[in-house]
Design a protein around this nucleic acid. Structure first.
Lengths: 309, 309
DNA sequence: GGATTAACATGAAATACATTCATGAGATCG
DNA sequence: CGATCTCATGAATGTATTTCATGTTAATCC
């Protein structure tokens, strides 16, 4: 009798459209697939009609489903904006968000995320702390940065009043030439790197997962060659000058075009994790939590093959 | 961390503004005052600021409160509209709502309610079945009306697949001249009517609560005089030609201007109740439930001193 | 054509959450 | 200064959402 529609349902419907499947939508919302299934069932029962076709991929919505999507499209941004306004009214927000980055590829997703953020929080001073620092958390302590994007969290930092907000996890794959002997392998181990030239970004060793997690533990030291640009690394690999290890999402395009080949590293794959870390006090700021959740969402929707943490 | 705001909260905030107090807002929403208090407390905790000033009457909202109100003002109508659109998509609604009325004063609130309805459901054919019928439910059975506004429900009808949707309750007071001996009484009983002329609308006896509930049971029969217009009745009373019994809300204006006086009927007052009745099938239609809830709301906000059933 | 993987559905159990109940405190009014 | 009104609050209740543990279906792959 009485409408059971809540913002929650609108968020679900929108996530469903963006994510393209119940499973992915559930990850986006930090819920289980089952929860969404129940939610949607309840809605469909209330309206007496299905909201979307289950079989088709990509998901197709019915007319009532589209109408709900349209509603979500106007309502949810309005709600977000109102809540940001209230944050501003309550604590005249005029803070800063200086972001320290330790990994090269981060820029690929950080830029679009920052653009969205700038639009949502125009009065917050947004910056990237340039250069690559071996210890980005140190920059926070020195108050030269507000937020650091890091790949592992030092347990020692966690105690020091530093919060780690999980972002996402991505697979790091070995990139080899198409005609390489390794290209057809199911996966390769540390020993398979021996004799190769490793092509990397020009950053300290500790910041390269392939070294820190695989080669150094195995006691292997390789010839190195470095370059700033991902395309340049791929060009070197393609022309047989060496092997690289890069995030899968960063090279997906080239793989689809068969420019180079990717091989899993280790039997279960090598994964990089990313966290946003800041002092506990900063964690409280509404724009900080907004930045984190917005970044997670935009990365999940943009970067292929990543999973949220 | 995560926003707890739901449509429910927006409805609460809006009801609070419209009703002017937690208690009245709770009646509007079919909730207890306590529920709203808890809801608002949770919101204020989340935003870290009060939403309204508790002491002042009429209620004053703070800046965050106003911002939420503004949000509710854009969001809730959009949600309503979307749900109506979905109803239309699912079951191409093109029904009719022919309303049979048994009481005279009903027009005062029915007209504005119908105006709102017409705007919300333009494709539904809206009509009043004119004339005053002793048995409006009969009109439904004959399919000459879809909805009847009645003051008591016949138990015999309830079985026959007729639904009764409670609307509201109002007090019926005796209207006497200011200089009448009765004017100063705390309340008057059936015996106090003896010897007076009863001024009524020109309708059958069964439809007058004062007769049905008070005078007839006491075996009292009075001289009668009738007129169509409420003002005319008051004029007669004021000039000492008789006594009337009318809904308090209908005469509130005149009482405030001390044109006539009102006296409670019976120690605990005489109350009229109104229901909207229709066949069970009609009850299902989305526009019917919308009409009922919308009418309840608009009456509650417009008519002074009524309580929802 | 099984075997495997992936996506969604579903009933029951667990959990979280909103609401009510039963008060108390504070203000207002004859 | 009771009487009445409004709102707040903690505990108890009850409902509703979510998870858990499966089942089903469809698509993909040797």
């Amino acid at each position: 009798m009485q409408s059971l529609l809540e913002l929650r349902h609108l968020k679900t419907v929108q996530a469903l459209r963006n994510a393209g499947s119940l499973v992915r939508a559930a990850q986006l919302l930090n819920l289980t697939q089952s929860a969404l299934s129940h939610q949607l069932k309840a809605l469909e029962e209330q309206y007496g009609a299905p909201l979307f076709e289950r079989k088709s991929l990509p998901l197709r919505f019915t007319a009532p489903g589209e109408r709900l999507l349209a509603l979500a499209g106007t309502v949810l941004p309005a709600v977000d904006e109102a809540e940001r306004d209230i944050s501003r009214q309550v604590q005249g927000v005029a803070g800063s968000l200086r972001i320290a980055v330790e990994c090269h590829t981060c820029f690929d997703w950080l830029m679009p995320a920052m653009d969205i953020f700038r639009h949502r929080w125009p009065e917050v001073e947004l910056d990237i702390v340039s250069g690559f620092h071996a210890d980005p958390v140190g920059l926070i302590h020195q108050n030269r940065a507000d937020l650091a994007i890091v790949s592992e969290h030092d347990e020692s930092d966690a105690g020091q009043g530093i919060d780690f907000h999980p972002l996402f996890q991505y697979e790091i794959v070995a990139i080899v030439a198409n005609d390489s002997a390794l290209a057809s392998r199911n996966w390769i181990g540390a020993q398979d790197f021996v004799g190769q030239t490793l092509i990397t970004y020009p950053v300290p060793d500790e910041m390269l997962d392939i070294l820190r997690q695989v080669l150094t533990p195995a006691g292997i030291k390789l010839a190195r060659r470095s370059t700033e640009l991902t395309v340049a690394m791929l060009q070197l690999v393609a022309s047989g000058r060496g092997i690289a290890a890069l995030p899968l999402w960063a090279v997906q395009n080239y793989l689809e075009r068969r420019y180079v080949s990717a091989v899993k590293i280790g039997e279960h794959g090598l994964f990089g994790k990313l966290y946003a870390s800041c002092v506990a006090e900063t964690s409280q700021r509404p724009y900080l939590t907004d930045f984190v959740s917005m970044t997670r969402e935009s990365c999940f929707l943009t970067l292929p093959g990543i999973t949220l943490l």
